[in-house]
Amino acid sequence: RLKNSIMPVRLYYKQAVYRNNPTLMGRRNEFMQMGVELLGVKGKRADLEVLSTAIRAIMSVADDFRIELGHAQVFNALISEIDIDEDFKEKIRVTIEGKNYSALNNLLDKLEPCKAVTAIRSLPSLFGGDEVFDKATELCSGTKAVDALNYLHTLYDLLKTLGLGDKLIVDLGLVQRNDYYTGFVFCGYISGIGDAVLSGGRYDDLLSEFDAPMGAAGFAIDTDAITEKLLSDKNTSYTDVPDVLVYANDGAEIKAINAVADMQKNGINARFCVLETLEEAKAFAEKMGIDKVQIIG
């Protein structure tokens, strides 16, 4: 429905997502997810908007968080230089994603030694700060992966100016599904949750499957996981205390509702009182710590 829209298009959603986990391993098959997508544009500016939006999102729910940043084309470029079938490539990708060094070495030992094999062997251990780019560039020199590394370095340097400190980490072992992502990829973690609560990246080839080829990037948030974390935080208050409680005398109810709407437009946190008597309204305001009761009519 959006093919004829003026690009770029920004979308957001909130819905239940289903993923098949045959072994379960403590994971749910259904969870609530929120996400945003930026469609119809490619390039550094678009990538920075998606990344900075994701960072602001995770900062809004947690102080102790970490963003891991990678690039799909580092792995894709290296693996394309090795003559193996798609099933074997996927086995290698899964072992890197799981940082299973032993299984990865067993798989790579079956291949003829070459620069690409050596570089892939090191991917799970290439995480950290600026030093990662020096080591990775040396390992990948002469391969197509260097272009992706240079671009990732540019994004990393720009994001550092947001003052993230050690919360921003380069992880070249971040190899998401290589049939989906085509550019930068990232994950977000918060303290107390073992799995990533946020993930995304650039996926420029996907919309071609729907006869609408265009650049695309976005991210999704596991809202169930974040909710569980916040509910377990004893320092979090879930009481929304308004600044003003607006009570309507009989016959002035609509006037009071309009007054609440006007206050909210002007940035005042006001709430319409649904209690029947002024005495009940005043008692409620005192219990809640509401500073002002405004009587209409």
Results as ranks from 00 to 15, higher is better:
V74P: 09
V74M: 08
A72H: 06
G128H: 01
K89S: 13
K42W: 07
E138N: 13
E68L: 07
G142A: 06
D130Y: 12
E138D: 14
K110M: 15
G70F: 04
L152M: 02
A136V: 01
I67W: 05
A72N: 11
S52C: 10
K115H: 10
L107Q: 12
L111V: 09
R45W: 09
Y101L: 14
N105W: 10
A136Y: 02
T53G: 08
V41I: 13
S80K: 15
R56N: 12
L139S: 06
N150F: 11
T95Q: 13
K110D: 11
I67M: 06
R45M: 07
E86N: 05
S122M: 11
T95N: 09
T53N: 12
S125T: 11
H71M: 09
E81F: 00
L111K: 09
T118P: 00
Y151V: 05
D134S: 14
K144F: 07
L78W: 07
L48V: 02
V50C: 12
G129V: 09
I58N: 00
S141E: 15
L69V: 04
S102T: 15
N76Q: 15
D134V: 12
K115A: 12
I96D: 06
V50G: 04
T143F: 02
N100S: 13
L39N: 04
R121V: 05
I92P: 03
A136G: 04
F133S: 07
D85E: 04
K42H: 13
L126M: 06
I58P: 03
T53H: 00
F127Q: 08
S52T: 14
V61Y: 01
G43Q: 00
Q73Y: 13
L38R: 08
L104F: 03
E90Q: 14
G35P: 00
G142Y: 05
F127P: 02
A57W: 03
Y151H: 12
L38M: 09
L48M: 09
R121L: 01
A136T: 02
L139M: 03
I96G: 08
K42P: 01
T137D: 13
E86T: 10
K89M: 09
S80N: 14
I82A: 08
A46E: 01
D147M: 10
I79C: 10
L104D: 04
D63N: 06
A62L: 00
E90S: 13
D147I: 11
R121M: 00
A103P: 05
R121K: 06
L38H: 08
K110A: 14
G43T: 02
I120Q: 05
D47Q: 02
C114K: 10
E90Y: 12
